[in-house]
Design a protein around this nucleic acid. Structure first.
Length: 721
DNA sequence: TCAGATGAACCC
DNA sequence: GGTTCATCTGAT
């Protein structure tokens, strides 16, 4: 598409002064590239109505550098804005005159076609702009790091004669990374860690064969036994992920692993080391700009065979991607807090489809969204047989007040005698984990009899207590719940549930004199601990901050169970189970290891914990969502902001009908100058893409008209899932 | 002579 | 995507 005869190029490109309303300010004699003098550019512009590509002239001096993927700067109106070249062309469709590119910031093509394509899909899915997504996907350039990496690449290319990876991102190295050992089914190096899972072997076989299997995986609990006699400290899940990555490499492709936080990055990297995988790159935003950009460039240029990172790594440019792994689905850190608020699960699912890569989603719990992937046949379940799960799990007991009735008044204590006794005994065998809910306050309305969270009778949104109002009000559609009846037990009274916990470490210190108490929490003096030794100690941790104990915990106490399942959002039950199982998975298998759930939590997650069955709970929850028209059985979008702005945005959406619109409702706890409201749109899944379309168009109108105020659109807003 | 209609430029 | 400005058109 490059060389062709060049008919009056100048005229073609609007360089001559023919027909121009205004004369070109500078001399029109810009010397333009001989071949493909037009650069199609994606600019980093905020306004939604400017979300498209723009053509610029490529000055001859930039002809070789302005390659697709290169960072450039270009004149846009009065401003100089940053952007990326996405294509070179011989001609432009633009009627007017083209401006020349201002500068090629770097000829290193950092925006790969695959990532650009992904950005477009994500923007469409989440009613956002491509520029917004690219801001998430491509980290800020670090010139010194770039020079360093490119120099090293050039050096290597010269040394071993291997050409550097092609500019379009396709790697030239035959098998990425060093496949440590040949992994053949049944052969040496075949990942036995996946054997207990019925479909695990088939999943690996497909990866090895270069196919794109998709699995939703419920990992077995526990730590992976080390090869030598060293105490086990690598979680089983991390070892399994490492093996899946290794098989992918053996098949000649690369892998990308996205996890909720830095400690999990460590764990996966350790497991990859144990598995003999080299060329592992860690990609975390909180490593700082230089390491982050270095890791990004290494990934981009195929120097990493496995990329392990936190949320933003979901966009990492990995050539020859054979597997994407999402660990910890359901953790809040996997939801991007910046517009357009994409969820890692969705982004990676889109990626695996677009790039023909395998997809592996694993988590201690199971979200209804993951369950929905199974339900619609998009992914296959990877789970071990019940007997295996039982054999590998700790013994779990729920110490509800019913269970403890014989204890008398002490049953309602935060740490009932039975729990105290279990912990005391377990301390002879090793460390004991104590999980406490994060400190917080949450006004929630629940059934006064059975404590099931109360839902709106109209739209099934969660009820809340707004300000001084005595009657509970739906937090979605705003209706007052005057005549309410519990859907579980038929009771007609509600009560407020307050959530909060504090001083747990001190309380425990008093209860267990002479036992060291370690605290692992972001608010603790020592911060979050990655691991603890096998010595007896009480380890108090908030959810997600549990350290791995060498050889596993002897017991875990999951305190304040009632507060863990009380909350306004729909994911309360699955999230609570996720947290409990994440803690329980660090405990030794029974009967050596024991888990006690203390407090009266909702019955469904409690039962699911005792059975160690996140899949069962997710299935049940998904059924319920279907019946009640709740996501993910429907698609929802939230429009938040000033009342006028929100109304304007919603009014332009054709799919917004009395049937689909919930609200607007005043947002509590925000007493700023402007009132803030939220309107929810709820449509069938089949209208989901169209809803995003219409919202995007409405936002474009809004920015073109320069409508005031603020209005934020969120598809699948986390707090409603 | 001017109000309203039309359309391109804007921002490439 | 809408706004703005220039030009065109047709009625008066």
């Amino acid at each position: 598409m490059t060389s062709r005869d060049e008919p009056e190029q100048g005229a073609l490109l609007g360089l001559d002064d023919v027909g121009g309303r205004r004369r070109a300010p500078r001399s029109s004699a810009v010397e333009v590239a001989d071949v493909d003098p037009v650069a199609r550019v994606v600019l980093d512009l905020q306004p939604a109505h400017l979300d498209r590509e723009y053509d610029y002239l490529v000055p001859a001096a930039m002809a070789d550098d302005a390659v697709p993927g290169a960072r450039v700067r270009a004149r846009f109106g009065p401003q100089d804005v940053a952007g990326y070249v996405v294509a070179r062309a011989a001609t432009s469709d633009h009627d007017g005159r083209l401006q020349p590119l201002r500068r090629v910031v770097s000829a290193d093509p950092v925006l790969t076609p695959a990532v650009l394509d992904l950005a477009r899909r994500v923007a469409a899915r989440y009613a956002g702009t491509v520029a917004d997504v690219l801001r998430l996907a491509v980290p800020p350039r670090h010139a010194r790091v770039e020079a360093e990496v490119l120099a090293r690449l050039a050096e290597w290319a010269e040394a071993d004669g291997a050409a550097r990876p092609a500019a379009d991102g396709s790697a030239d190295r035959a098998a990425p990374g060093a496949a440590p050992r040949p992994a053949a089914p049944g052969g040496d190096g075949w990942p036995e860690v996946w054997t207990p899972y019925g479909t695990g072997e088939a999943f690996c076989r497909h990866l090895l064969a270069g196919q794109a299997p998709r699995g939703v995986w419920s990992p077995l609990p526990g730590l992976q036994a080390a090869a030598d006699d060293a105490p086990a400290r690598v979680p089983h899940w991390a070892a399994a992920i490492a093996q899946a990555a290794r098989v992918t490499l053996a098949g000649g492709r690369r892998a990308l692993v996205v996890v909720p936080d830095a400690r999990d990055v460590d764990r996966v990297c350790t497991a990859l080391g144990v598995a003999g995988v080299e060329e592992v790159e860690r990609l975390q935003a909180d490593d700082g700009p230089a390491p982050r950009y270095r890791a990004f460039l290494h990934a981009r240029h195929g120097l990493a065979s496995v990329v392990v990172g936190t949320r933003a790594a979901m966009f990492a440019p990995v050539p020859d991607l054979g597997l994407v792994v999402l660990w910890g689905d359901g953790e809040e850190t996997l939801d991007e807090p910046h517009a357009p608020y994409p969820a890692a699960r969705e982004v990676l699912a889109m990626r695996s489809e677009a790039e023909g890569a395998g997809f592996l989603l694993g988590s201690p719990g199971r979200t209804v969204q993951a369950q929905a992937m199974l339900a619609r046949g998009w992914a296959a379940e990877i789970a071990a047989a019940r007997a295996v799960v039982r054999a590998r799990s700790p013994r779990v007991r729920a110490l509800t007040s019913v269970e403890l009735a014989h204890e008398g008044p002490g049953a309602a204590a935060r740490l009932p005698t039975a729990a105290w006794r279990t912990a005391r005994t377990a301390l002879d065998r090793g460390p004991v984990l104590v999980q406490v809910p994060r400190t917080g306050y949450l006004p929630v309305v629940a059934c006064a009899a059975c404590r099931t969270a109360a839902r709106c009778t109209h739209c099934h949104g969660p009820l809340g207590l707004g300000g001084a109002r005595a009657t509970p009000q739906c937090t979605w559609c705003g209706r007052l719940a005057g005549t309410w009846r519990c859907e579980e037990c038929g009771h007609d009274r509600v009560r407020a549930v307050r959530v909060g916990s504090e001083r747990t470490a001190e309380e425990l210190g008093r209860a267990f004199t002479g036992v060291p108490v370690r605290v692992s929490a972001s608010s603790a003096p020592g911060g979050i601990l990655a691991s603890v030794a096998a010595d007896p100690a009480l380890v108090v941790a908030t959810p997600g901050a549990e350290p791995v104990a060498e050889g596993g915990y002897a017991a875990a106490l999951l305190l304040d169970a009632a507060t863990a399942t009380a909350g306004t959002d729909l994911a309360m039950a699955t999230r609570a189970l996720h947290r409990w199982i994440a803690a329980a998975a660090l405990v030794r298998p029974g009967p050596d290891g024991q888990v006690l759930l203390v407090g009266d939590a909702a019955p469904a997650p409690t039962g699911a914990l005792v059975r160690f069955d996140p899949a069962g709970l997710a299935e049940r929850e998904l059924d319920e969502r279907r019946e009640l028209d709740l996501p993910p059985a429907v698609r929802v979008a939230a429009v938040t902001g000033d009342p006028d702005a929100v109304r304007a945005v919603v009014d332009r959406v054709e799919l917004a009908t009395p049937e689909t619109v919930l609200g607007p409702v005043d947002l509590p706890g925000d007493d700023r100058l402007e009132a803030r409201v939220r309107t929810v749109l709820r449509v069938p899944l089949s209208d989901g893409a169209e809803l995003a379309n219409q919202l995007r168009a409405s936002l474009a109108v809004r920015s073109a008209r320069r409508e005031g105020g603020t209005a934020r659109v969120q598809i699948d807003p986390q707090e409603m899932l």
